[in-house]
Nucleic acid binder design. Sequence first.
DNA 1: AATTTCCTCAACCGCTCTAGG
DNA 2: CCCTAGAGCGGTTGAGGAAAT
Length: 335
Amino acid sequence: MGRAPCCDKANVKKGPWSPEEDVKLKDYIDKYGTGGNWIALPQKIGLKRCGKSCRLRWLNYLRPNIKHGGFSEEEDSIILSLYISIGSRWSIIAAQLPGRTDNDIKNYWNTKLKKKLLGRQKQMNRQDSITDSTENNLNNNNNNKSPQNLSNSALERLQLHMQLQNLQSPFSSFYNNPILWPKLHPLLQSTTTTPNQNPKLASQESFHPLGVNVDHQHNDMKLAEINNGVSSLYSENVEQSQNPAHEFQPNFGYSQDLRIDNHSMDLMNRGVSKELFQVGNEFELTNSSSWWSEEVEVERKTTSSSSWGSASVLDQTTEGMVMLQDYAQMSYHSV
DNA sequence: AATTTCCTCAACCGCTCTAGG
DNA sequence: CCCTAGAGCGGTTGAGGAAAT
């Protein structure tokens, strides 16, 4: 017993859309809207298409103000920083880029942007063998912590974190140099361990380079996955919790318990990114300079020749978020 | 010029989530 | 509370064009 198909596959046309089909669909939606029922829509118009196919065609190509190709560097930066922040949540990323569709961004990332970044890294590797040893360290770390527990996306983001760090500071290994690690709250420093230090963590949880231990089986960690971290900006330690449930206490750069009320969780699960950030705006932020060690902060200031474009919608988000963007873009442009 | 390989991206698939009965 | 249909999402595929041989 499989799942019932959403439409009669035998009587449905597949493949590329003809201009006539596009006109039919666009005209109808312009006049009457979708009617809130995509499944019924093709029958009303007389299209031999699956409702899902109509929806996709409308969202990705026919609706007004859609942009294709020609991604700007600013858009690249936003995609990069959000990908590192939240992973392959393409719909959320697309919501930050007016006129872009999730499908477009997904394709752009998979075919160009990712290669662009990895290409830079390969170039760096050729130039500097120190970087190679760093990659080996990463691989070793992955081996130690049961890599099958990490999704490809999470691994990729981990690697990107590493690579961005290397691009920024190619002569030192992020993982081998604790001075580069973000400072943790003194009281909680001891609660965050590396997989090597804690075999239990190594086998059960994703190890985050910035101190975020993600237990994917724990419901609270759904948020952590998203924040992992809007980005890595949050650390949490559920086991150490002293706080009541439903109390959301974000804290940039400090490892501590992280809880969230149902409404906020719902917003995040729905991918309502603006509201996600608005939730973030309510945070009482700690001084962002504490997030990175002074060494990184100094280098950040001296190397950065660019700043976030004033047009970025993300500029109005939390200080911490902007800082992350700044970090990502600075790293990106620093090569 | 012919063939092969690579790349791009539109579209599909199958899953999860959600609302409504 | 359960079930179902529809919406939405992310991963994957494959046709077609471009580049390389």
